[in-house]
């Protein structure tokens, strides 16, 4: 490869260099793809990440993120229909497996009480005779990498499940 060996010593290697240029250009494309995916929300916070689910009876509507990041912030927004209230109380249940893996930073509005149950935590909110849905927001900080399974429902009604992937 060293065409000029007789006069100038340069440890050239054009075979290697060409391969490097190729790898370089492939990497640029890959970096571009990663950026586009990031904008779309594949790594959290974006249209591909925002999603929602509803319980079969339509009492609960959840908005959550498909993709979150460990020690980043994500939110779970719960819309609770007024019909979910029993004797002025709304009892929202979330699986403890999930709550153990995402640190709950804040619940807005603050629940009246949090009751420990079999594999579930029950957040108790009080309502007057209202017709507007109650909006509860959980600020979460995921602490475990991988797929998280969550189950959210009103006490005594069929819950809804969702999965969330947490990046390192």
């Amino acid at each position: 490869m060293n065409s000029s060996a007789n006069r100038v010593t340069i440890e050239e290697d054009m075979v290697f260099q060409r391969r490097e240029w190729l790898v370089q250009r492939i990497s640029w494309v890959l970096a571009g793809v990663v950026l586009v995916l990031a904008l779309l929300g594949v790594f959290g916070t974006g249209p591909l990440s925002w999603t929602s689910t509803t319980t079969p009876d339509g009492l609960l509507h959840l908005e959550y993120e498909r993709f979150a990041r460990r020690l980043g912030m994500t939110a779970l927004a719960v819309d609770i229909a007024p019909e979910a209230a029993r004797q002025g109380e709304i009892r929202l249940q979330i699986s403890q497996d999930y709550l153990g893996d995402v640190m709950v930073q804040k619940v807005t509005p603050e629940p009246l009480a949090v009751v420990n149950g079999a594999g579930k935590l029950t957040y108790v909110f009080t309502t007057d005779e209202v017709t507007e849905p109650l909006k509860v927001s959980f600020d979460l900080r995921p602490d475990r990498v991988g797929v998280q399974h969550a189950e959210v429902g009103i006490e005594g009604a069929p819950p809804t499940r969702f999965r969330q992937f947490v990046y390192p």
Binding site: S3, S4, I10, E11, E12, D13, M14, F16, Q17, E20, W21
Partner: peptide, 24 residues
Amino acid sequence: AKVTQSVPVVLVENGRLIPERLAK
């Protein structure tokens, strides 16, 4: 070392530019 630091590339040889290498 080659992989992490790359290799030198001759851009001008005997006074002549090598356009392909310049462009790359």
